[in-house]
Structures are given as structure tokens and as C-alpha cells.
């Protein structure tokens, strides 16, 4: 289990130097994990459940209506409760962690409704487990802060494609089709955006 000093270690590097930006939700999540603290869980619920519902309504309009989004929001928050102890503040912020849970819940739901006779366990593909190959240190924390700050400064056409990918759950191909753009244009817009967010995928 991570110590309390972890809370203070999330660094925010700006052009002017380093300042500490604690993730306010880490402490709540830790209390849920350690003692099943329902007061803290309520705080998490009140903040995140409406965001998760918004995410599901945008990303699943083809599959789910409003009441389905409500039920799935409950599924996601149930997983937050059950998996709280596996949250690792060294790897991701609470926002990111909850995003990945909501994302997996969404794709699991879509697959269950795809008349698929055989299922792969979604958690076997999009899993949190470490592998023997250590994670390469890309200065994860620093980049996380850069992403937060830089997202709001992206040109409209770049933030639009990112929103379609991450929130509306559209692939490069689907975005190209919807915006009537060549696939290469969508790819280069996303690459430009990633470069500004300092996610430097060198290929």
C-alpha cells in the first residue's frame, strides 16, 4: 500500500517551475479501500457518477438509452468500490483510473449486445496487471500534468478528434467517415494533438 506522502508527490511542472498538485480523490479512494468508508465513497459517487453517466450517454447513444446509462453508471461505481484497493496512485490519477473502468464497462456491454456467442474476457485485454517487461519511465507524472494543462489550449479541430475518440468512442476510421476526411488527416490531427500533449509516439 502506498504511504500518505504519495498524496503530495503528484508534481505539476509548469513553465515556471514545479508545484505540487495533490489529487483530491486519492485520499477518499484510499479510505474506501482500507476501511470501506461510506462517507468518502459517497463523495466519490456524487462527483464521479454524473460524469460517468455523461460519458456513457455520449459514447453509447447507439446502444443504450438513458435508463441503461443509469444502470451502467451503477456498474462502474460498484467496480470502483470493489477495486479500490487495486488503485495505484503511482500509475494513474483517480480520473484516469475511473475512465479506464468506465471504458471497459462500456466495451463489455457493447460486446454482450453484439450477439457474440463466444466472449473474450475484456479484462484480459485491457488489463491493469504488470508484465515482466517493466514500464518504461516516460516521466509519467509530469506528462499527466502537461496533458491536463495543454488539453484546453488545443486548436478546436484537434480537441474535436480527441473527444470523438475518447468520449464518443469512435475509431480513426469512424471519425474519418463522420467528418468526411481522409484517414491520414484524422491520424495527423491526432498525432499533432498528442505531440502538444507531449505524448511522443515516435512512429
Amino acid at each position: 500500500m502506498t504511504g500518505t506522502d504519495d498524496i503530495n508527490s503528484r508534481k505539476n511542472v509548469t513553465g515556471w517551475g514545479t508545484q505540487t498538485v495533490p489529487d483530491p480523490w486519492e485520499a477518499s479512494l484510499r479510505k474506501v479501500a482500507q476501511s470501506g468508508d461510506r462517507v468518502e465513497f459517497r463523495k466519490l459517487f456524487d462527483h464521479f457518477a454524473p460524469l460517468i453517466k455523461a460519458f456513457l450517454m455520449k459514447g453509447m447513444s447507439a446502444y443504450a438509452d438513458r435508463s441503461m446509462a443509469e444502470e451502467m453508471t451503477q456498474e462502474v461505481m460498484l467496480k470502483v468500490w470493489n477495486k479500490a484497493a487495486s488503485f495505484n496512485s503511482g500509475k494513474a490519477s483517480v480520473n484516469t483510473w475511473i475512465f479506464t473502468i468506465a471504458r471497459n464497462t462500456r466495451i463489455d456491454f457493447i460486446r454482450r449486445n453484439d450477439r457474440a456467442e463466444r466472449n473474450i474476457d475484456i479484462e484480459d485485454i485491457w488489463h491493469e496487471a504488470d508484465s515482466p517487461e517493466p514500464l518504461v519511465d516516460l516521466q509519467q507524472r509530469r506528462v499527466e500534468a502537461v496533458i491536463r494543462n495543454a488539453l484546453s489550449t488545443l486548436p478546436e479541430e484537434q480537441s474535436l478528434v480527441l473527444e470523438k475518440a475518447f468520449i464518443e468512442s469512435k475509431s480513426h476510421n469512424e471519425i474519418a467517415e463522420e467528418l468526411d476526411l481522409p484517414l491520414g488527416t484524422v491520424k495527423s490531427r491526432i498525432r499533432l494533438a498528442l505531440n502538444k500533449l507531449q505524448i511522443l509516439i515516435d512512429r
Binding site: 490519477s93 479506464t100 475518447f166
Partner: peptide, 8 residues
């Protein structure tokens, strides 16, 4: 995934 987290 952090992009997704911040957009969420």
C-alpha cells in the same frame, strides 16, 4: 488513458 481521464 490520461487524455480520457481528463476529458471525463
Amino acid at each position: 488513458a490520461d487524455i480520457g481521464g481528463h476529458m471525463l
